[in-house]
Structure formats: structure tokens, C-alpha cells
Design a protein around this nucleic acid. Structure first.
Lengths: 142, 142
DNA sequence: TTTTTATTAATTGTGCACAATCTAATTTTG
DNA sequence: CAAAATTAGATTGTGCACAATTAATAAAAA
């Protein structure tokens, strides 16, 4: 019966910490008029010139039901443009506008702020990140 | 600039794994007509006879804007009853109905199923849970 | 005791998440 | 080629999350 105690679940601290982490980002992201999932999309687009919705979804593990309206909001706020591919009209390419590219300058300090607020060692951070990513990779194969 | 790469963020695997974990629970919870946050509420109420919404919120780190409608849905499906406290009418007490108590029998196997699907060692599970809980506790103080 | 301040829920509004379904375009097969 | 299957994205509907506001009650202070 102990297995059904909240304190014995892995899932719960994962769920709670995930939400608290996005709460930690919120004050910084509010200044950029970004939500946390939108910030993740921006991270991807600062790395890759152009991505399809499908590709963004694969990276972030999100489906079109989430991404389509999210990207439309980001288009409305002027951060990205959405262009249907000419060669294959099923595909929508997403890329940053000039404003979207410029926003990177304002975001540059965020990871350091978050890291200092977490007050854990760099090595613990890395090992934790690796553990979580390993589990994630295992689940991916199913 | 590397700090702004998706792969270098702790927050992202945390966010993605948290969602994948609830996806792992979904098939089992569907059979009980529960969502994942509802399951967390049930875990609490299987442990504690009666809790106020405030107390549930403290345990799960959720506010009334989330819990009020969630608990109303659970009341509609007949799992819990919501009773305003007579001594202090600001407080709403939540407790299980007979059906709610009986549902524990059907849930008893879930943690084992999840554990086996995760295919990680018991010791890794425990240390990971501890690490996450420690960080969570640190954030709590702010 | 009246006034002020705290606390507890409920409400409203926005933005995810995700299942399920649909449409249109492309690829594969026969 | 034409029919069938697959793929990419959009749409719809439900259920969280959470900020901000409101209402009701209780406790504390003047």
C-alpha cells in the first residue's frame, strides 16, 4: 500500500519541479513577452534557421494541436513567420523575423540567472540533466 | 551562446520527461477514469481521511484556480464530496465517497507497472527522486 | 467593539497539452 | 496510370495551470 503514497512516487517531484522550474523562468520570460513553451521554440529557432512544425514537434515532444495555435500567437506578436513549403504543401516552415532574432540578445542572461537561483553545483546539474535525458531517450523508443 | 542551446538546459528534459511520465500513466488512469492530477489528489485522500482545498494545494503545489474545477469534476464523477466547514465557512473539506475509497483496489498495481516500464534500477529511482525533491525543497523556501 | 488585516475559495481569462477527427497533399502499390 | 496508404498540419473539445480579481469569513489591532 505504501507504493500508493505520494511521497514514494518519482512522478510527483518530477511533475512538481517541472512546474516550479517554469515558474522560476516566468519573471524573466515575462519581460520578453514569452511563455515557457514559446521560449523553447525560440531556443530551437536561434539554433536553426528554419524548421517545419513537424521538426519542432519532434524536438519538443509536442504535437500540432499544441504547436499550431502557439506558433500563430508567436506570428501575431511578430517573432516568427510561417510559410507553407512550395515543394510539399503539407509542410509549414517556421523561421524568425528580425525581431525574433534580436530577442536573443535580451535572453542571453537567462540561463545564468536560473542557475544561480537553483543554487546547485554545476556537476550535479549536468548529471541530473543526463539522468533525465537518458530516461527520456529510453521512453522514446516505445 | 551555448547556454541558449536547448540541449544544454536542465529545464527541458525535466519538462519533457514530466509530460512523458504522465503519458506513461495515461493508459492505466484511463481505466479508472482519472487524469494524472486527479490521481495525485486520490493518492492524498487515500492517505488522509479529510483535507481542505488549501491543504491539497500545499501538498501538490497547485492553487485554487486549478483545484476548484478539478475537484468539482471529481465530485460529479462521484469520487469525492466537498463540504464547507461549519466552524469556518471559508474552508471546503474534501473527502472520498465510498466509490472513491473502493477505487484504491483498482489502482494498487499502477506503481509497479510504471516502474517496470521505466526499466531503471530501484536505487537509481530512489536517488533521482531524492535529488528532485531536494531541489524542490530548496525552491519552496523562496 | 469597530475597523483593519489575513485567510480561504471561487471566478475569470489566457495559454498550454493532448486525444480524436478532418483535410489536403504526397507516396506507394497494384 | 488509379486506388490505397501515409504524412503534415489544422480543428475541436476537454482538462489542467496559473495570474488576477472578488467575496466571504475570521482574527488582530485600534
Amino acid at each position: 500500500m505504501d507504493q500508493l503514497h505520494l511521497q514514494n512516487q518519482l512522478c510527483f517531484p518530477l511533475y512538481a519541479l517541472s512546474r516550479q522550474m517554469t515558474a522560476l523562468y516566468r519573471p524573466y520570460l515575462d519581460k520578453l513577452d514569452l511563455t515557457y513553451p514559446q521560449y523553447l521554440v525560440m531556443l530551437l529557432l536561434w539554433q536553426h534557421e528554419r524548421l517545419s512544425i513537424k521538426e519542432i514537434g519532434c524536438e519538443l515532444w509536442l504535437d500540432s494541436g499544441t504547436l499550431t495555435p502557439l506558433l500563430k500567437r508567436m506570428e501575431e506578436t511578430g517573432l516568427v513567420s510561417r510559410v507553407r513549403c512550395l515543394q510539399d504543401e503539407r509542410i509549414v516552415h517556421v523561421q524568425l523575423t528580425k525581431d525574433g532574432k534580436l530577442l536573443q540578445k535580451k535572453a542571453i542572461g537567462i540561463p545564468d540567472h536560473i542557475f544561480s537561483e537553483l543554487s546547485i553545483s554545476n556537476s550535479q546539474l549536468k548529471s541530473l540533466k543526463k539522468e533525465l535525458s537518458d530516461i527520456l531517450r529510453k521512453l522514446e523508443k516505445k
